[in-house]
């Protein structure tokens, strides 16, 4: 996997950039959030370090799933009513990125898609069907923090409503409703026992 290096505008540390389309990065050394805009790197503020919990996935530690190898390069944590979930931005062998959502042993691979419109959070009630999908979970979440590099800008403390929909075959469809609009992703639930983390 090709990497190039940028310099943190706050502390000057070298920061290897793994994904060339990354838009947000956290400096490992000083904890600065950095916007990556074309060739420019802009300071976006500081965040506290995310508390560490036991996790199968770790930043920069490759893992394999179904004969593909993935490298986690970024990680976002969201708070919700029941606890928290993690979203890992991982890069596969071909350099393509995919999100891995992890919530206490529930693992899902997801790719962002164009959201269906028009759609309202209120219309998607629990146990109802939407376009062949069953609404299995809905709630409100807040971005608690991030680490590594990400392909999108996230704002710490920003909150949104979310809906999870399921379909036969372990398929997952998730929607996020915020002031910025709707974000959608489709994916599949995976068995964590089939994820092999490289030693």
């Amino acid at each position: 996997m090709n990497t190039h290096t940028i310099n943190c505008p706050q502390c000057g540390s070298d920061l290897p950039l793994t994904f060339r389309y990354s838009k947000l990065m956290l400096c490992d050394h000083c904890g600065s959030s950095l916007f990556l805009e074309d060739d420019a790197v802009r300071f976006a503020g500081k965040q506290s370090i995310l508390p560490e919990y036991p996790s199968l996935l770790q930043l920069k530690q490759t893992f394999s799933y179904l004969n593909n190898t993935y490298l986690p390069v970024g990680h976002i944590r969201y708070d919700y009513e029941k606890g928290f979930w993690d979203e890992w931005w991982v890069i596969d062998n071909s350099g393509e990125g995919v999100w891995v959502t992890v919530d206490e042993g529930d693992f899902a691979f997801e790719r962002e898609i164009e959201p269906p419109s028009p759609l309202q959070f209120q219309d998607l009630r629990l146990d109802t069907m939407f376009d062949g999908w069953l609404v299995t979970e809905r709630g409100h979440a807040t971005c608690e923090g991030f680490e590594g590099e990400l392909p999108k800008i996230v704002t710490i403390g920003a909150s949104f409503d979310y809906v999870d929909l399921s379909k036969r075959g372990g398929k997952l469809f998730s929607l996020e409703f915020s002031d910025q609009g709707i974000k959608a992703a489709k994916g599949i639930w995976v068995d964590p026992f089939e994820i092999k983390v490289d030693e």
Partner: peptide
Amino acid sequence: DYQIFSSTHGY
């Protein structure tokens, strides 16, 4: 049935 829990692999 014993409910068991792993912090990395869930329930």
